[in-house]
């Protein structure tokens, strides 16, 4: 080990000033941030309550119906409903519903943020030049690093868990929305311009529909990545399946960890199959 790498600037001092900056943020803006995040928290709590208090069979039926709407295949719908039953059979229904609520919320937020940002990136190449490295950083920076400031700002709980999850999960959706729009057949777009379509009509009538398979692939990726964050999210107070895994690790209870892990995988499969089936159907209905 060697300590004599030349010191160009005061890295230690920099660390310090970053710390102070974040602390400053916390003291000055914590209240504001809490007010802003309150509606999201309410919504999450509402979804969670809904899922946890509803009879288990109604949730199972709802998932089956959604799977059917996405795929129009009865077998698929039945399969997905049965998969969800597995979570209950593992004795993890309640935790599963908590995780499901977190997933739904962070996927929704990711879509609300990701698709518009992706659209903007496809429009403005300068924005793309800025965003691409930012997305790289978001995807490669270890989650724990941004957990610290997020926790400092929002405290432990569900909101920081969602923020951390969204930061980690939104990049693929942004990328694929941008890519999907840029890959739209230029001949079709030109035709719509030639008939006098305005930018809004071009976007909603041509670009987004034709990019939909890619966007759905992005949403699929986003849900997968969000699920892989649940354990980390549980470290900052999001309860659910992640917490079970964490307990398993802490107490060296392999069984507990394994069952919770299995339940996470099951949820992942459900999300994956449903979003993929929807994306595929979009592709098949349109161009061959």
């Amino acid at each position: 080990m060697s300590d004599n790498f030349p010191q160009v600037f005061d890295a230690r001092g920099m660390r310090h000033s970053i710390d102070q900056f974040v602390e400053g943020l916390v003291t000055n803006y914590a209240d504001v941030l809490e007010t802003i995040s309150a509606p999201f928290l309410h919504m999450l709590v509402w979804i969670e309550q809904l899922l946890r208090t509803a009879p288990w069979w109604s949730v199972v039926i709802a998932v089956g119906v959604i799977a059917w709407l996405a795929s129009r295949r009865i077998l698929m719908a039945l399969g997905m409903a049965l998969m969800l039953c597995v979570v209950g059979l593992l004795g993890l229904w309640d935790q599963g519903m908590q995780t499901l609520a977190l997933m739904i919320m962070s996927t929704a937020i990711s879509v609300i943020i990701g698709i518009p940002v992706g659209i903007m990136m496809s429009r403005f190449s300068w924005l793309r030049r800025i965003m691409l490295p930012v997305l790289d950083v978001m995807q490669t920076m270890p989650g724990f690093v941004y957990l610290i400031p997020v926790v400092m700002l929002f405290g432990l709980g569900k909101i920081p868990a969602i923020i951390a999850t969204v930061i980690y999960a939104v990049p693929p959706l942004i990328r694929l929305t941008d890519l999907g729009i840029r890959l739209v057949d230029q001949d079709v777009l030109e035709a719509s311009r030639a008939f006098g379509a305005n930018p809004r009509q071009q976007l909603f009538g041509v670009q987004l529909p034709l990019a939909l398979p890619n966007i759905m692939a992005g949403i699929n990726q986003t849900t997968m990545m969000a699920l892989s964050m649940v354990v980390i999210a549980s470290m900052i107070g999001a309860r659910g399946l992640g917490q079970e895994v964490l307990l398993g690790i802490n107490r060296l209870e392999v069984g507990r960890g394994l069952l919770a892990g299995t339940a996470i995988v099951v949820l992942a499969i459900i999300f994956d199959r449903i979003t993929q089936a929807y994306g595929k159907r979009q592709t098949a209905g349109g161009n061959s």
Binding site: D185, D187, V188, E190, A191, S192, R193, A194, F195, G196, A197, N198, G205, V206, P209, L210, Q282, G285, G286, N287
Partner: peptide, 22 residues
């Protein structure tokens, strides 16, 4: 005005069709 002009005054047929696949 250009959009209106394209809507009302000229229409176009393309070599590679340019139909909306969906």
């Amino acid at each position: 005005d250009l959009e209106t002009f394209r809507q009302q005054t000229m229409s176009m047929v393309f070599q590679r069709f340019g139909l909306l696949p969906h």
